[in-house]
Design a binder for these strands. Structure first.
Lengths: 134, 134
DNA sequence: TTAATAAAGGACAAAAATGTCTTTTATTTG
DNA sequence: CAAATAAAAGACATTTTTGTCCTTTATTAA
């Protein structure tokens, strides 16, 4: 789950890096990465091409999608909706003591992840160190 | 890890509920609860008395401690310090693209958990539904 | 002082998350 | 079309987290 954004930043700029190349650059077990990429491509976040010279890439429109989409695809959306204390009964109509205050924090996080596109994140990475080895 | 705050809210008001009593009221496996309570009592957040009529309680001064202490005791403080993306290289001097913005969100959460005492949380629970069965 | 009670502690078991390996399928290039 | 390449897919292994059980130790009350 860690190695998510690396793909995003690498796979673009026209090229189509393969699993091995990506794995080396982000310092992650290749076979494990493969599974994650499979999920992401099934969810339509990244695209893949089989065969020689194949690999992964992201379409221009895909770069516009928010980081939140990646999280949702990989881990579901509990982060965006769950209670701070993990209380199952907690809801808008039956809030736990921290519910309202926490909701603000959570909403801000949600906003942040929805307002930051994969492309923007990538751009900042390229501008900076690009140290993605975990 | 879920069943944390329940103890806090129950064990006070002079009584010393035992594991069984607590477990039933919060709908959690008793033996598992026991381990959590052990940790918390080792950390000095709750107190325990062995023998007949023994059980768990929290001293008045303990009620003043922030919720954050419970979290730290049980899960460490990565929540309060870690990077949103789980990037190990991310730090103040080498920030990831979301670092600064996320830090604000995280600090707000931290503040919230430090400003809310166990006692205050308990009070709100007693005032409200007190539905703590998970 | 002894019997009953209840937490402490450690060993063990199950489930989930993480990671590895092998086979299959699709694509491209010669 | 054949061979090589690379992702897809699923089986399998390891590790971590979560949960259970049993024995020991401390305390209280009769």
């Amino acid at each position: 789950m860690r190695a998510v954004f690396y793909i995003a930043s690498r796979s673009s700029d026209g090229a189509r890096p393969g699993i091995r190349e990506i794995a080396e650059n982000i310092n992650s077990p290749g076979h494990f990465l493969a599974k994650i990429l499979q999920k992401l491509s099934k969810e339509g976040i990244i695209c893949s091409v089989k065969g020689p010279n194949g690999g992964f890439y992201i379409e221009p429109q895909g770069l516009k999608r928010p980081l939140a989409d990646i999280i949702t695809a990989l881990e579901g959306n509990e982060i965006f909706t769950g209670c701070a204390m993990g209380l199952s009964y907690c809801s808008e109509s039956n809030p736990c003591p921290l519910h309202h205050e926490f909701k603000q924090v959570r909403n801000r996080l949600t906003q942040m992840l929805y307002n930051t596109s994969i492309g923007a994140f990538k751009q900042e990475l390229l501008d900076g160190a690009l140290t993605l080895n975990k």
